[in-house]
Structures are given as C-alpha cells and as structure tokens.
C-alpha cells in the first residue's frame, strides 16, 4: 500500500543524488560561494534551533503542565507558522522589521540590521522552526507523569532539582528530536528567507539562483551537498539519542 509513497520520496531524491558527476560535485565544493552558502545554511539553522530551545522549552513546559484561560488560542498561534505560506511569513517579518517600520528604525539606531543580514535569516528560521520544537517537546513533557514530579518533591527535591533530576532525563530525547525537527525545517526554508535576505545567500537561495541562471546541472551539485550535510546531521543526532537499552 505504501510503496507508491516510498517511491515518491526515493526516486526524485535518488535521481538528484545520483545524477551529478563526481568531478562536478568536487569542483562545486571548491567554490567559495558554495561553501559559504552551505556553511551559512547550517549555521543559521543551528542558531535558530538554539534560540527555539532557549525560549521554547519553558513555553513547552507551561503548555504541557498548566491550564489557563486562552491556552487553546496560544496553541493555535504556535501552530500558525506551519500553515502560513512561506513568502507571507517573509512579508510579515519585513513589515515588522523593515527599514520603514518603527521597530526597524529603532533597531537600526542601535546598529542591529534585520533585512539582508544573518540576524534576519535567523529570525525567519526561528519563526518557521519553533512550532516543530515546541510541539515535540510539549508532547514529551506531557508523557512525564505528574506523579513522578510529585514523588520527587516528597523526597525532598525542590522544583528546580525535580526538573533536572526527573523531568529532564525523561524528556531529553524529545528535546533532541524537537531540535532535529526544528533544524530540519530551518535548513530547508526558502520562501521566507528570500524575501527577508536574498543576500547573504543561504544554500536553498543559491540553488534557486543557479537553477534560474545556469540551469538544472549547476543547481544539483549544491543541492547534493545540502542533502548530504542534512542527512549526516540527522543520522548523528538520531544515533546520539538512541533509547538506551534497559536490562
């Protein structure tokens, strides 16, 4: 039943990976522009994930543990970036931080530039990636029985100790998984990034540019390396977070 789906994923990707010639791939790697774009993609995606982790973890905990008025609305807002067309996200960020907006001018005065900068790219990537992180980690927190936290308190551990000795060790795999999803989403973002920052160029933008300017063959070489890096990154993270076998 699922075979067509598997083919749909394997064939285009396989074709993409197998088509470029080895010499082309190697020469692509020697290009400074390509290396920079790949590095930028990786760096901004990881930076966005770090931001999502710092600010998203407490949010995920509150969403999993507390009931309050308007919780459903906040849940909806967290999911919203998943549904909005990507260029719309770019336009929204542009209208908020653009050079003509109040916020944009204020930031400009203190020397922070959003449009056409790495900062801007990271903000966009946080926007599109954070929902994946928050939702995954929230599910993790929900799977930790409150009773375990209560039991820890009754044994003398305060709230902070309880979090680090009970909640976190149970939920950390969800945190890694959430980070993987967030990075994955961020590294693949194109539509929103291209509106906020065509330059400095990330890998997807470079691939698009090479496709429109030089054609399929040139874009494929960059795409190959982007896919390879992503694959390596995710396999490593998965291995690292493999469930420990319990005797």
């Amino acid at each position: 039943m699922s075979l067509p789906l598997i083919f749909l994923i394997i064939f285009p990707l396989g074709k993409m990976l197998l088509m470029p010639e080895f010499s082309d791939l190697m020469s692509a790697l020697k290009e400074r522009v390509v290396l920079e774009a790949l590095g930028r993609s990786l760096f901004t995606a990881l930076a966005a994930t770090a931001v999502a982790m710092v600010f998203g973890t407490p949010l995920a905990y509150i969403m999993a543990r507390k009931n309050f008025f308007g919780k459903k609305v906040i849940e909806g807002l967290i999911d919203l970036p998943i549904m909005i067309p990507h260029p719309v996200i770019g336009i929204a960020i542009l209208s908020l931080f653009g050079r003509n907006s109040i916020l944009g001018r204020m930031l400009d005065r203190v020397g922070v530039e959003i449009m056409g900068s790495l900062t801007g790219i990271v903000i966009v990537l946080v926007f599109v990636g954070a929902p994946f992180y928050v939702n995954t980690v929230k599910a993790g927190f929900e799977s930790v029985p409150i009773r375990l936290e209560k039991a820890s308190r009754t044994l003398g551990a305060g709230m902070t100790s309880t979090f680090f000795r009970v909640t976190f060790p149970i939920v950390w795999r969800n945190i890694v998984l959430g980070a993987v999803m967030c990075t994955a989403r961020a590294i693949s973002e194109f539509g929103a990034v291209i509106i906020v920052a065509y330059h400095p160029m990330t890998a997807p933008v470079l691939i698009y540019e090479r496709f429109t300017a030089y054609g399929l063959k040139y874009s494929q070489c960059v795409a190959f390396w982007l896919i390879a890096i992503s694959l390596l990154l995710f396999v490593m993270m998965r291995l690292f977070s493999r469930p420990r076998r319990i005797q």
Binding site: R147, L148, K150, S152, R153, T154, G156, A157, P169, I170
Partner: peptide, 20 residues
C-alpha cells in the same frame, strides 16, 4: 509548607518509581 520541606514520606498506589 512546600512538600519537600514537610519531612513526610509517601508511597503511591502506582509506586511512582523513576523509570530512568
């Protein structure tokens, strides 16, 4: 007083042992 400062102990019906 918060539970951790009461000096009481509890054993739950489902034991609530730490799985990790």
């Amino acid at each position: 007083t918060p539970p951790e400062e009461r000096g009481l102990g509890i054993v739950y019906q489902d034991y609530a042992l730490f799985p990790h």
